[in-house]
C-alpha cells in the first residue's frame, strides 16, 4: 500500500513546528501503524535525515506510551485500540494521513510527536492510591469483594494512562483519566477510608495542571483505547459533592507519650 504522511515536526519544546510531507510507498497492510512509521524512519535515516520521534514501547496496547492524533482522531480510526494496535489495512491505499502530537496545554511537546504527560503522574500523587505500606496486610480472602464490584473496578483500572481522553476533549479535560482511578479504588472496600480525601486531592490537582473542565462532550470515551465509560465521571462528580459537603478538618496526629 502507498501513503503520503503529513507529520508534525518540532525540534524542541517551545520552538515553532510545522507539517512536513513524507511519501510512504510499499507498506504491507499487515504492518501496524507504528511499524509503518519504523519503515519511513529507516528510509529517513538512510538518507541522512533525522527520524520522526514518537513514543512507543510495548506495541500491544498496554503500556500507554504511544500517543498521536491520526487524521485528527486520538489513536486513529480503530475503536478500542491504541495507535500501536492500528494496522494499515484500516486505511485506503493512496491516502494522505495526518499525524500530530496530543493537543493539550497540559501536555507540552518535547519533540515531534512526543509530549510531556507527567501531569497525569502528579494527579496520581495527589491521592490515586490506597495507603497500604508493605507488610502487615491481612489475609487476602478476609476482604470479600462482590464479583460485580471487582469486575467494574477492573473495567476502570484498565486505563493505560495514555492521555487520549485529554487529547480528544474539546476542553482538554483529564476527567476520564482521574475518574477512572477514583472509580477503580472507590468501588473496592479497601478504598473506602480514603475515598473523600482521594477525590478532593485528585480533582484539585487536575485543576492545578491546567486541564480543562468536563462539560460531558463524551469525546473521551470514544477515544479511550480501553473504552472506559464516562459513567466514571458521573461517579466522580457525585463523590466530589459528597466529599465537599462532609469534609472534616484534618487534625495533626500523634500522642504526647
Amino acid at each position: 500500500m502507498d501513503f503520503t504522511l503529513r507529520v508534525w515536526r518540532q525540534a524542541a519544546p517551545g520552538t515553532p513546528g510545522r507539517f512536513v510531507d513524507y511519501p510512504a510507498p510499499g507498506i504491507s497492510p499487515d504492518a501496524s501503524f507504528l511499524e509503518m512509521l519504523d519503515v519511513v524512519n529507516e528510509r529517513l535515516i538512510e538518507q541522512g535525515h533525522e527520524p520522526i520521534a514518537f513514543s512507543h514501547d510495548c506495541r500491544e496496547g498496554i503500556c500507554g506510551s504511544c500517543a498521536m492524533m491520526i487524521d485528527g482522531v486520538a489513536h486513529g480510526p480503530v475503536a478500542g485500540a491504541a495507535a500501536c494496535q492500528v494496522h494499515m489495512r484500516s486505511f485506503r491505499t493512496g491516502a494522505r494521513v495526518t499525524i500530530e502530537p496530543w493537543r493539550s496545554v497540559a501536555f507540552p511537546v518535547i519533540k515531534d510527536l512526543v509530549t510531556d504527560r507527567s501531569a497525569l503522574d502528579r494527579i496520581i500523587q495527589a491521592g490515586g492510591f490506597i495507603t497500604a505500606p508493605t507488610g502487615g496486610a491481612r489475609d487476602a480472602n478476609e476482604i470479600l469483594v462482590p464479583k460485580d464490584a471487582a469486575d467494574a473496578a477492573m473495567d476502570a483500572a484498565s486505563c493505560i494512562g495514555c492521555g487520549a481522553c485529554v487529547a480528544a476533549c474539546p476542553n482538554g479535560s483529564a476527567s476520564l483519566f482521574t475518574a477512572a482511578k477514583l472509580t477503580h479504588l472507590g468501588l473496592l472496600p479497601q478504598g473506602q477510608p480514603e475515598r473523600s480525601r482521594r477525590t478532593l486531592g485528585m480533582v484539585a490537582q487536575m485543576d492545578r495542571e491546567h486541564f480543562g473542565h468536563c462539560t460531558l462532550f463524551g469525546e473521551c470515551q470514544d477515544a479511550c483505547p480501553k473504552q472506559i465509560s464516562i459513567d466514571a465521571i458521573a461517579r466522580m462528580n457525585r463523590d466530589y459533592l459528597h466529599a465537599v459537603i462532609t469534609a472534616r478538618p484534618e487534625r495533626s496526629g500523634g500522642g504526647t507519650g
Partner: peptide, 22 residues
C-alpha cells in the same frame, strides 16, 4: 502468599468468585 495479601490491600482488582473470594 504475602504478595497476594499486599496487592489486595493496595486495591489490585483480582478476579473474584460470586461469593467475593479470590
Amino acid at each position: 502468599a504475602n504478595i497476594i495479601d499486599q496487592c489486595v490491600a493496595q486495591g489490585v482488582p483480582f478476579a473474584r468468585e460470586y461469593g467475593g473470594l479470590l
